[in-house]
Design a protein around this nucleic acid. Structure first.
Length: 221
DNA sequence: CGATTTTGACCAGCGC
DNA sequence: GCGCTGGTCAAAATCG
């Protein structure tokens, strides 16, 4: 049923283009806060590096295309490859996963596809890109520009905090994400995205539309 | 009143 | 086969 290729939204942006997108910058969106920004207030969110790296290596890659990354686009470079020492916690069926909490969440994917009341495992084995990262934040929910609806919450083993399950509210979009706070370090939130958005980011379009109109206007001179 | 969250039940995969 | 665990469903509750 999932043979056809959906278009990936939003289109890849360069880091410089992010400057024009205030909602993608802190504190609204902690994803784009470099870990080196130690001057940030403790109350604001901060993207931290995955536990795959040595402590000294903890840094955020400045050239990462974060927007496409969140949309699951291969352009982000997380199609199984490592970029500049930065590794996702989870990528495409557990390749490179190391955080124990994510490992447990990622054990499945054996192809069960039945659909009944009460769920069961209905994940595709390999077709859904997955990506996990950690943020240091007081809030569990990141403002990534998409709208999410919570469809479940579950207490997980070896963790004091429950894992929350969200689905993209767009009718045709089947992207999911899991959010969990680490019991080891309660200030850290692990967010796992699964799937590819097949629609534009609402906030992105909201911000881009006036910009594009202005550019069109100026280009006439 | 529609959208979203909460929450308990259900189900499948895995290890033993 | 059985129990444990994680993921999902869906009814009820809550919110805006």
């Amino acid at each position: 049923m999932e043979g056809h290729q959906e278009p990936n939204y939003p289109p890849p942006l360069t880091p410089s283009s992010l400057i024009s997108l205030p909602f993608l910058l802190p504190p609204q969106n902690p994803l784009f806060t470099p870990s080196s920004a130690s001057t940030a207030p403790s109350s604001s969110s901060q993207l931290i590096s995955p536990p795959l790296l040595e402590p000294q290596q903890h840094q955020v890659l400045p050239d990462i295309d974060w927007v496409s990354l969140l949309s699951g686009s291969p352009a982000a470079g997380f199609d199984g490859q490592e970029i500049n020492n930065y590794k996702p916690l989870v990528e495409n069926n557990n390749v490179g996963a190391s955080a124990e909490n994510i490992n447990e969440a990622d054990r499945e994917g054996k192809g069960a596809n039945s659909k009944r009341k009460g769920g069961g495992r209905m994940r595709k084995p390999a077709s859904r890109p997955r990506f996990a990262f950690q943020t240091r934040s007081a809030d569990d929910i990141l403002d990534d520009g998409y709208r999410w609806r919570k469809y479940g919450q579950k207490a997980v083993k070896n963790n004091l905090y429950p894992r929350s399950y969200y689905r993209c509210t767009h009718h045709t979009c089947n992207v999911k994400k899991q959010v969990q706070r680490l019991s080891k370090d309660t200030s850290i939130v692990v967010t796992t995205y699964e799937g590819t958005h097949n629609h534009p980011c609402e906030k992105l379009m909201e911000t881009l539309t006036p910009l594009l109109k202005q550019m069109q206007f100026l280009s006439r001179f």
